[in-house]
């Protein structure tokens, strides 16, 4: 499924720093991954590990006060990190689309939601003329299951519920028919029932339109349901990549094991050995394996020994030199 030369998008060595009181602090370090056509790749990791930053980089976008120090993002033969704003405009939205985390803050508060769809259609010349764009907007609203589209279009974002707001965002995505959608925790801010409905809607759109998806979340349960492959991130680095079933059945990196063990379960009690200790502290990252200070398997060399992704199974890579021992111990 993941032959690199037919990938929709290919990220190489992505390295991003943030400016924190006059000093650059690394947030994403040498990230490399690719997404195949029609594939859903899950990107998992705890808050602040650089997931969103990575997601933004796929748009050639960096937050103000950050810099992309190295790397490339290959999309249709272009390196998005070296394009100027004007060239990126044609790709952003039209080819790669972002569905952000919090629908309540995603739509512009001062603009009616219908206008926010129409302006996107017009910017990408998806509709010819205002009339057509308006009609298309109403169609889209109906498609994503918004009741009374004509009336909804006249409303301001704050007059919609969280689920409706997210449907508006998805309607815009649908209009653009992008090749790749970046879902940045698209359901975290919604209640559970709305979450399930939005997930079903996204899944339907994905299969109908054959889009590739990067699904960013800290919720492994969701990833297990919808992803073909899962990539696990820790402190700005990839620590494990594997097809979903393989990752959940045979996790090789101690951090992945910790994440999986952290999912609350009713059936079996969690093993103490796997539990994650402590918190991610960016100021105290060791020069070697960044996870070493919190790792239950770590040896003293781990803190100084640089780790890189190595193949540990079919389509399965992990960045831990002790992976065989970890595997044996757990059996």
């Amino acid at each position: 499924m993941t032959v690199s030369n037919e990938a929709v998008i290919q990220v190489e060595d992505l390295t991003v720093d943030y400016l924190d009181r006059q000093a650059w602090v690394n947030v994403v370090n040498r990230m490399s991954f690719s997404i195949a056509p029609g594939e859903t790749l899950g990107l998992a990791g705890e808050s602040g590990c650089g997931k969103s930053t990575t997601g933004f980089a796929l748009f050639g976008y960096r937050r103000p006060g950050s810099r992309i120090r190295a790397g490339s993002v290959q999309f249709e033969g272009l390196d998005l990190l070296s394009l100027d704003e004007r060239a990126l405009q044609h790709i952003r939205g039209a080819e790669i689309f972002l569905v952000p985390q919090n629908p309540a803050s995603t739509l512009t508060p001062s603009m009616r939601v219908g206008r926010q769809v129409i302006e996107t259609l017009e910017s990408h010349k998806i509709s010819s003329g205002r009339r057509e764009a308006e009609e298309r907007t109403l169609e889209l609203f109906a498609q994503v299951g918004l009741p009374q589209p004509g009336e909804i279009a006249q409303r301001y974002p704050h007059q919609l519920s969280g689920g409706q707001q997210q449907r508006v965002v998805i309607a815009i995505a649908l209009a653009c028919q992008p090749k790749l959608v970046v879902l940045d925790e698209p359901t975290t801010a919604l209640d559970v029932t709305t979450q399930a409905r939005i997930l079903r809607l996204l899944d339907r759109l994905k299969t109908e339109h054959g889009m590739s998806v990067l699904y960013i979340t800290h919720n492994l349960g969701v990833l297990a349901q919808i992803c073909n492959r899962v990539a696990v991130m820790y402190a700005g680095e990839l620590v494990e990549v594997a097809p979903t079933a393989e990752l959940f059945n045979n996790p090789r990196h101690p951090y992945t094991r910790g994440l999986i063990a952290a999912v609350p379960r009713l059936s079996a009690p969690n093993e103490d050995r796997e539990k994650l200790r402590g918190l991610l502290r960016r100021e105290e990252l060791p020069p070697g394996c960044r996870f070493a200070p919190r790792c239950n398997y770590a040896l003293s060399e781990c803190s100084t020994q640089l780790q890189a992704l190595t193949t540990v199974g079919k389509d399965h890579q992990a960045a831990c030199w002790l992976w065989e021992r970890v595997a044996e111990e757990v059996g």
Binding site: G93, A94, P100
Partner: peptide, 12 residues
């Protein structure tokens, strides 16, 4: 978030 979203929608 909304200014970033507007930017990443591909608006000028």
């Amino acid at each position: 978030d909304y200014v970033r979203f507007a930017t990443l929608k591909g608006l000028s």
